[in-house]
Structures are given as C-alpha cells and as structure tokens.
Amino acid sequence: MDRKATAVWRGNLQNGKGEISTESGVLRNTPYSFSTRFGEASGANPDELIAAAHASCFTMALSGALAKKGYIADSLETSATVTVEKQGDGFAITSSKLRLRAQVPDIDRGTFESIANDAKANCPVSKALNLKISLDVDFHQSLHSTSASH
C-alpha cells in the first residue's frame, strides 16, 4: 500500500508560496507558505499535517487494539500537538503530545491505559516519527455497555 502527496513551491523561502495535494483529493492545491508555518496566516503547514496524521493514526490503532480485546469505544477523541523548535541554523520537530479523551464501557482505567500506551508505541505514524511522544489520557468509563463480550 503506497500513499502519495505532492508539494509544489514557487519563490524563495520567506516570500514564496506552495501548494499541497494528496492522491485522494482531500487536499487539492492547498496553499502553504512561510507565514502559514511560522506565522499566523491561514493555510496548511507540514507540522499540522504531521499532527493530523499522528492523531488519526493513533486513534485508529487504539480502536483496533481495543476491539482485539473485546472492547468498543463510545468515543475516542485525540488531539496531537507537534512542537517545532529552533536547533542550530534550522528547525526540528522535537515532540508530539497526544491528548486523548475516551469513553469506553466495561473496561478499567489500568487496562485501558495499557492498551492506549501500546497503541501509542505501535501505530505506524508513531513508529515513523523519531521524536519524543507523550500521551495524556482523560478516561471515562461509559455508563452503558455497547462493547462486545470479552
């Protein structure tokens, strides 16, 4: 399985402009620039795309890991905050902080956190990132049961 994205850039770093497109068409000629990455201008940037990829990959991996153990989440909501820091003459993405809000019936907090930490370590995007990854869990056991039998 291969996934493809294309980036085009015109001009110099500070005043140039680019466009990002994905093979699926979800992003099509989506603008990005120095000011969308390092300033407050509206538009995409590589760092938020990495954050979106990490949040979505982890959440899918967690859903799958829970299902393997017989649990079905009522709700999994993950945000990822990717930190970019100046290093030497350039910049580096140094960490990704996952923040998870979860409602899962019929599972204790310890079991849930164990499954969540395993999903954090083993989702494909986590494996691809060479940086510090943390997970902050806001867990609530649901009052009703929608999960499969264990």
Rank of each mutant, 00 (worst) to 15 (best):
E113L: 12
T6Y: 01
V125Y: 08
H150M: 10
V104M: 01
P31R: 09
V137P: 03
K4G: 01
S149V: 12
D2R: 14
T30K: 13
K132W: 10
L98D: 03
N29P: 01
A55Q: 01
S56I: 07
C123E: 02
R28P: 04
E23A: 00
R10D: 15
F38L: 10
G110Y: 11
T59G: 09
Q87F: 13
F34D: 04
T59F: 06
Q141W: 09
T81Y: 12
T146V: 15
A61N: 07
G70E: 07
T30R: 12
R99T: 13
R109C: 06
R3A: 04
A41V: 05
Y71A: 03
S95K: 09
D138Q: 10
N29R: 09
G110N: 14
A65E: 12
L100D: 02
Q141V: 10
V125N: 00
D2K: 12
K97Y: 11
A51N: 07
D138F: 06
A41C: 02
E113C: 11
A5Q: 03
A128S: 13
Y71G: 11
K69Y: 04
H54L: 07
L76P: 00
G39Y: 01
L13R: 10
L49H: 00
G11R: 08
I20C: 02
G43R: 01
S35K: 13
D106I: 06
A61T: 11
S126H: 07
G11Y: 07
T6P: 01
F139M: 07
G70T: 10
G110P: 08
K97I: 11
A102V: 01
A148R: 08
A128P: 05
K120T: 03
A55T: 04
L135I: 07
L131A: 10
V104Q: 01
S145P: 06
V8Y: 12
F139E: 00
V104K: 02
S63R: 11
S21T: 06
E48K: 06
S56P: 02
A52F: 04
L49E: 09
L49M: 12
S79R: 14
A92Q: 14
A128L: 09
Q103A: 15
S145K: 11
D118V: 09
S79Q: 14
G70P: 11
G16V: 05
M60Y: 05
A44N: 08
A44V: 05
G25F: 01
G43Q: 08
P31E: 04
